[in-house]
């Protein structure tokens, strides 16, 4: 469970990026963070685990004030996957093992290795486990980074465009896995995502950002042609096809 009160952020004394951000998400839910480019989506999720220090406001992760936690304790509670990650001459297994860093004192324990193995098989990365990450495709790399975040065994999962490089099949598979994990482990996922139809399919909470403020927040009922028009500046229709809600743009 995550709750955010009155969060604000600005770079130095410059332009404010985020203002009066207030929302909460119950355990086991997936929240989609939506908005046009530069609305402050990435900045928002980076403020939640203090990658960026917010100027004001409070973030509670499972009731604990994130400001009072050490970096290590934050890492045990909140995992983050960046939009892009540089590939290195490191095996996929070791890249996922890095997710155990907050728990490792000097050498990884048997349990750490066990967790890495189960995450790798959960994301169907077994065949890549011994490959170097600088030999992977963009989509494979994105899955590896998600695996690393899951190996952290977080209570909150922050994902910045986790499906940006994935093919159609993998987009659905990966989001399905994320949804399953949030439900079975009763954790939160906060996902910055551009594909509205994927968001509608796999997320249950929607946070629409406009100019650094929350424009609208709630369940699927906040996705209406009016809100989408105001946030993205594009006329759309929202329809149900075979029981699935879809957004169809009319530029």
């Amino acid at each position: 469970m995550i709750s955010v009160e009155n969060l604000s952020f600005a770079y130095g004394r410059g332009r404010t990026i985020l203002n009066d951000i207030d929302f909460c998400a119950p355990k086991g839910s997936c929240t989609a963070v939506l908005g046009n480019n530069g609305a402050g989506k990435s900045t928002l999720i980076k403020c939640l685990n203090r990658i960026l220090e917010p100027q004001g406001g409070v973030v509670y992760a499972d009731g604990k004030n994130v400001r009072d936690l050490s970096r290590h304790d934050i890492a045990k509670n909140i995992a983050y996957v960046a939009q892009r990650s540089a590939a290195q001459r490191v095996t996929v297994f070791d890249a996922v093992l890095l997710g155990r860093k907050p728990y490792i004192k000097f050498e990884p324990s048997r349990e750490d290795i066990q967790i890495v193995r189960s995450v790798i098989s959960r994301l169907e990365l077994e065949n890549l486990a011994m490959r170097y990450t600088d030999e992977l495709s963009g989509g494979e790399m994105q899955k590896v980074m998600l695996a690393r975040a899951l190996a952290q065994q977080p209570r909150i999962l922050l994902l910045d465009e986790p499906t940006g490089n994935l093919d159609l099949g993998n987009q659905y598979k990966v989001l399905e896995t994320i949804r399953q994990i949030t439900r079975t482990e009763q954790i939160n996922a906060i996902i910055v995502i551009h594909d509205l139809n994927l968001a509608l399919r796999y997320c249950d909470r929607f946070l629409l950002l406009k100019d650094g403020r929350i424009f609208s927040h709630g369940g699927i009922e906040v996705i209406t042609p009016e809100t989408i028009k105001k946030v993205y500046g594009l006329p759309v229709t929202v329809q149900k096809i075979n029981g699935i809600t879809v957004v169809i743009p009319y530029p």
Binding site: K46, N49, R50, I51, S70, R71, H72, D73, I74, A75, K76, I78, A79, Y80, V81, A82, S85, A86, Q88, V90, D94, L98, G99, K101, P102, I104, F106, Q152, L158
Partner: peptide, 23 residues
């Protein structure tokens, strides 16, 4: 050698390293 996991984490970029608990 006490910092070797920190060096490993830093390779993935400063933001990811921070999210893994590295100061």
């Amino acid at each position: 050698s006490l910092n070797r996991w920190n060096f490993n984490a830093l390779q993935s970029g400063d933001e990811t390293a921070k999210s893994l608990g590295v100061n």
